[in-house]
Nucleic acid binder design. Structure first.
Length: 492
RNA sequence: GGCGCAUUCGUCUAGGGGCCCAGGACACGGCCCUCUCAAGGCCGAGACACGGGUUCGAAUCCCGUAUGCGCUACCA
């Protein structure tokens, strides 16, 4: 980047392979990526797969495909490696065990043989509000009981010892200092009894070992920040900067954005839904960036990806929750479609035409692009606008062909006269076609709009179609006359 | 229950003590342009959650309330 705004950062996007890539998650990744690119730093993909029970096959592939589609290429990751690998947490288990042992040795952590039921009972006996008292209880177990359980094959969990009093001061770069009384904090689990680390341990260790400078993660982590500061200090490390972008809310703003699979065209939720729904990645990126971030002045809405890299400012990320606004996405998508070079639009339209059963290639589409470019909101609307150029449409109904104030006889006459004119017209291009047809309407005393409407329906079987004269030009002489003849036949 | 975070038009946001009887955008309404549909242009309606402070002066600072969201061992 020409103007790095700061020293190079190392940021990481660390999702769990537990499902599809959610747009809110993707937005955090976007902020990461923007920061890395703007400072000439590195964007690292790390996979947090320490909960075997939640693993969803194929989700890692979808995650990477989604990131790539958005254009968020990573510099280090499980597929491409890097100097700080491995980048799959499940392959780093010895590292976590070694670090857990260090905390055990330094007295910052302890083993616990209690069951969840026992802990629950302790909590109930003390009252939920008194975390420090629960901690006191959890930390003691008679030595012989502990030995008995260990010998019986019970595997301990390893917990971090939170100070029983005082307060922990942590800092979120967009919210400032956050102070938490230690007596409200329960000892967090570092290593589960199955031997796998929790996020609290694994993420802190990895961020340190991978030299992460800025941690961007969802707001749901904010309550854990004091734990993380405590853990980092227990290791004697220098903490990275923490930033917690807010969550996405439903369009109503009343609740958290649904995790349920959004229908592809209605309320897309996952990155693949946006893709399937005909949204441009650059529009999705533009839209996502605008939710929870705004440039100084705030008058700018449309950004290309390079412009975003340039303009993004971490300190301007907003801490308040954001309701998603799909209407704005639609608008932005239209804007970005109009910004595309025609051949690029043609190229991107191909898969959507194929999906609709119209077998065309980019070059077939290219001459038609000017007719529809400013009419598209999403790419998947293209087939409905263009199919009649490639596939004979179903015959129109007589009613839709006859304008309100005209009779079937008038309509027939209009069609016949148009046919006569077009049959000999040279050159067969939009301007002469328009001139001829307008002249005809005037000579016969028809409203031009009525004449055009008849022809539009006759040629495309649609009431709404691309501009008539261009459409006639591209349909060509033969097809145009043929369809007019068919319409004439229909009218008897 | 405890703790934490948040709160400007319906929505995204600008604004960070006087420039603000609050600016931009989407959506909405009207008009213009117009072969349909769009795109585009112009105009309009629409907000500082509430209550106390601090101050000559508060959307902006402080406190409280309300509301929303999140976390509350062995999900991330």
């Amino acid at each position: 980047m020409p103007f790095p705004t700061a020293a190079p950062v190392r940021v990481r996007f660390a999702p769990s392979p537990t499902g599809s890539l959610h747009i809110g998650t993707a937005r955090t990744a976007l902020f990461d990526w923007l920061l890395a690119r703007q400072t000439g730093g590195q964007f690292i993909l790390r996979i947090e797969d320490t909960d075997r029970s939640r693993y969803v096959p194929g989700s890692l592939e979808e995650l990477m495909a989604g990131l790539r589609w958005l254009g968020l290429e990573w510099d280090e990751g499980p597929d491409i490696g890097g100097p700080y690998g491995p980048y799959l947490q499940s392959e780093r288990l010895p590292i976590y065990h070694e670090h857990a042992q260090r905390l055990l040795d330094s007295g910052h952590a302890y083993e616990s043989f209690y069951t969840s039921e026992e802990i629950e009972a302790m909590t109930k006996s003390v009252g939920q509000g008194d975390a420090a008292e629960v901690n006191r209880l959890m930390r003691v177990m008679p030595a012989d009981e502990a030995r008995r359980r260990r010998e019986a094959g019970v595997k301990p969990a390893i917990l971090f010892k939170v100070p029983l009093d005082g307060e922990t001061v942590a800092r979120d770069e967009i919210r400032g200092e956050i102070r938490t009384p230690n007596r409200t904090l329960r000892d967090p689990v570092l290593v589960k009894s199955d031997g796998f680390p929790t996020y609290h341990l694994a993420a802190m260790v990895d961020d340190q070992l991978m030299r992460i400078t800025h941690v961007l993660r969802g707001q749901e982590w904010l309550p854990s920040l004091p734990f993380h500061m405590l853990i980092i200090r227990a290791f004697g490390w220098e903490p990275p900067l923490f930033i917690h972008p807010s969550i996405f809310l439903d369009p109503s703003g009343k609740g958290k954005m649904s995790k349920r699979r959004g229908s592809t065209t209605d309320q897309p939720t996952f990155v693949r839904d946006f893709r399937a729904g005909g949204y441009l990645p650059e529009a999705v990126v533009n839209w996502a960036a605008l939710m929870g971030w705004g440039e100084e002045g705030g008058d700018r809405e449309v950004y290309t990806i390079p412009e975003l890299v340039q303009a993004f400012k971490l300190e301007r990320v907003r801490p308040s929750p954001t309701a998603v606004n799909y209407e704005k996405l639609d608008w932005l998508n239209g804007v970005h479609i109009r910004m595309l070079a025609p051949d690029e639009l043609a190229r991107r339209l191909v898969p959507f035409m194929h999906r609709a059963g119209v077998a065309v290639c980019r070059d077939d589409l290219l001459p038609l692009v000017p007719l529809i470019q400013q009419r598209l909101t999403t790419l998947d609307e293209a087939p409905d606008l263009l199919d009649f150029f490639f596939v004979p449409p179903p015959p129109p109904t007589i009613e839709e062909m006859i304008p309100k104030k005209m009779t079937a006889e008038d309509t027939r006459a209009a069609l016949a006269a148009s046919r006569g004119l077009l049959a000999t017209l040279e050159p067969f291009t939009a301007e002469p076609i328009e001139a001829a047809l307008r002249g005809l309407a005037e000579a016969r005393g028809w409203k031009a709009g009525d004449l055009f409407s008849i022809l539009r329906v006759a040629l495309s079987s649609k009431r709404v179609a691309p501009p008539l004269f261009g459409a006639i030009e591209h349909l060509g002489h033969a097809t145009t006359l043929e369809r007019i003849d068919q319409a004439l036949a229909l009218l008897g």
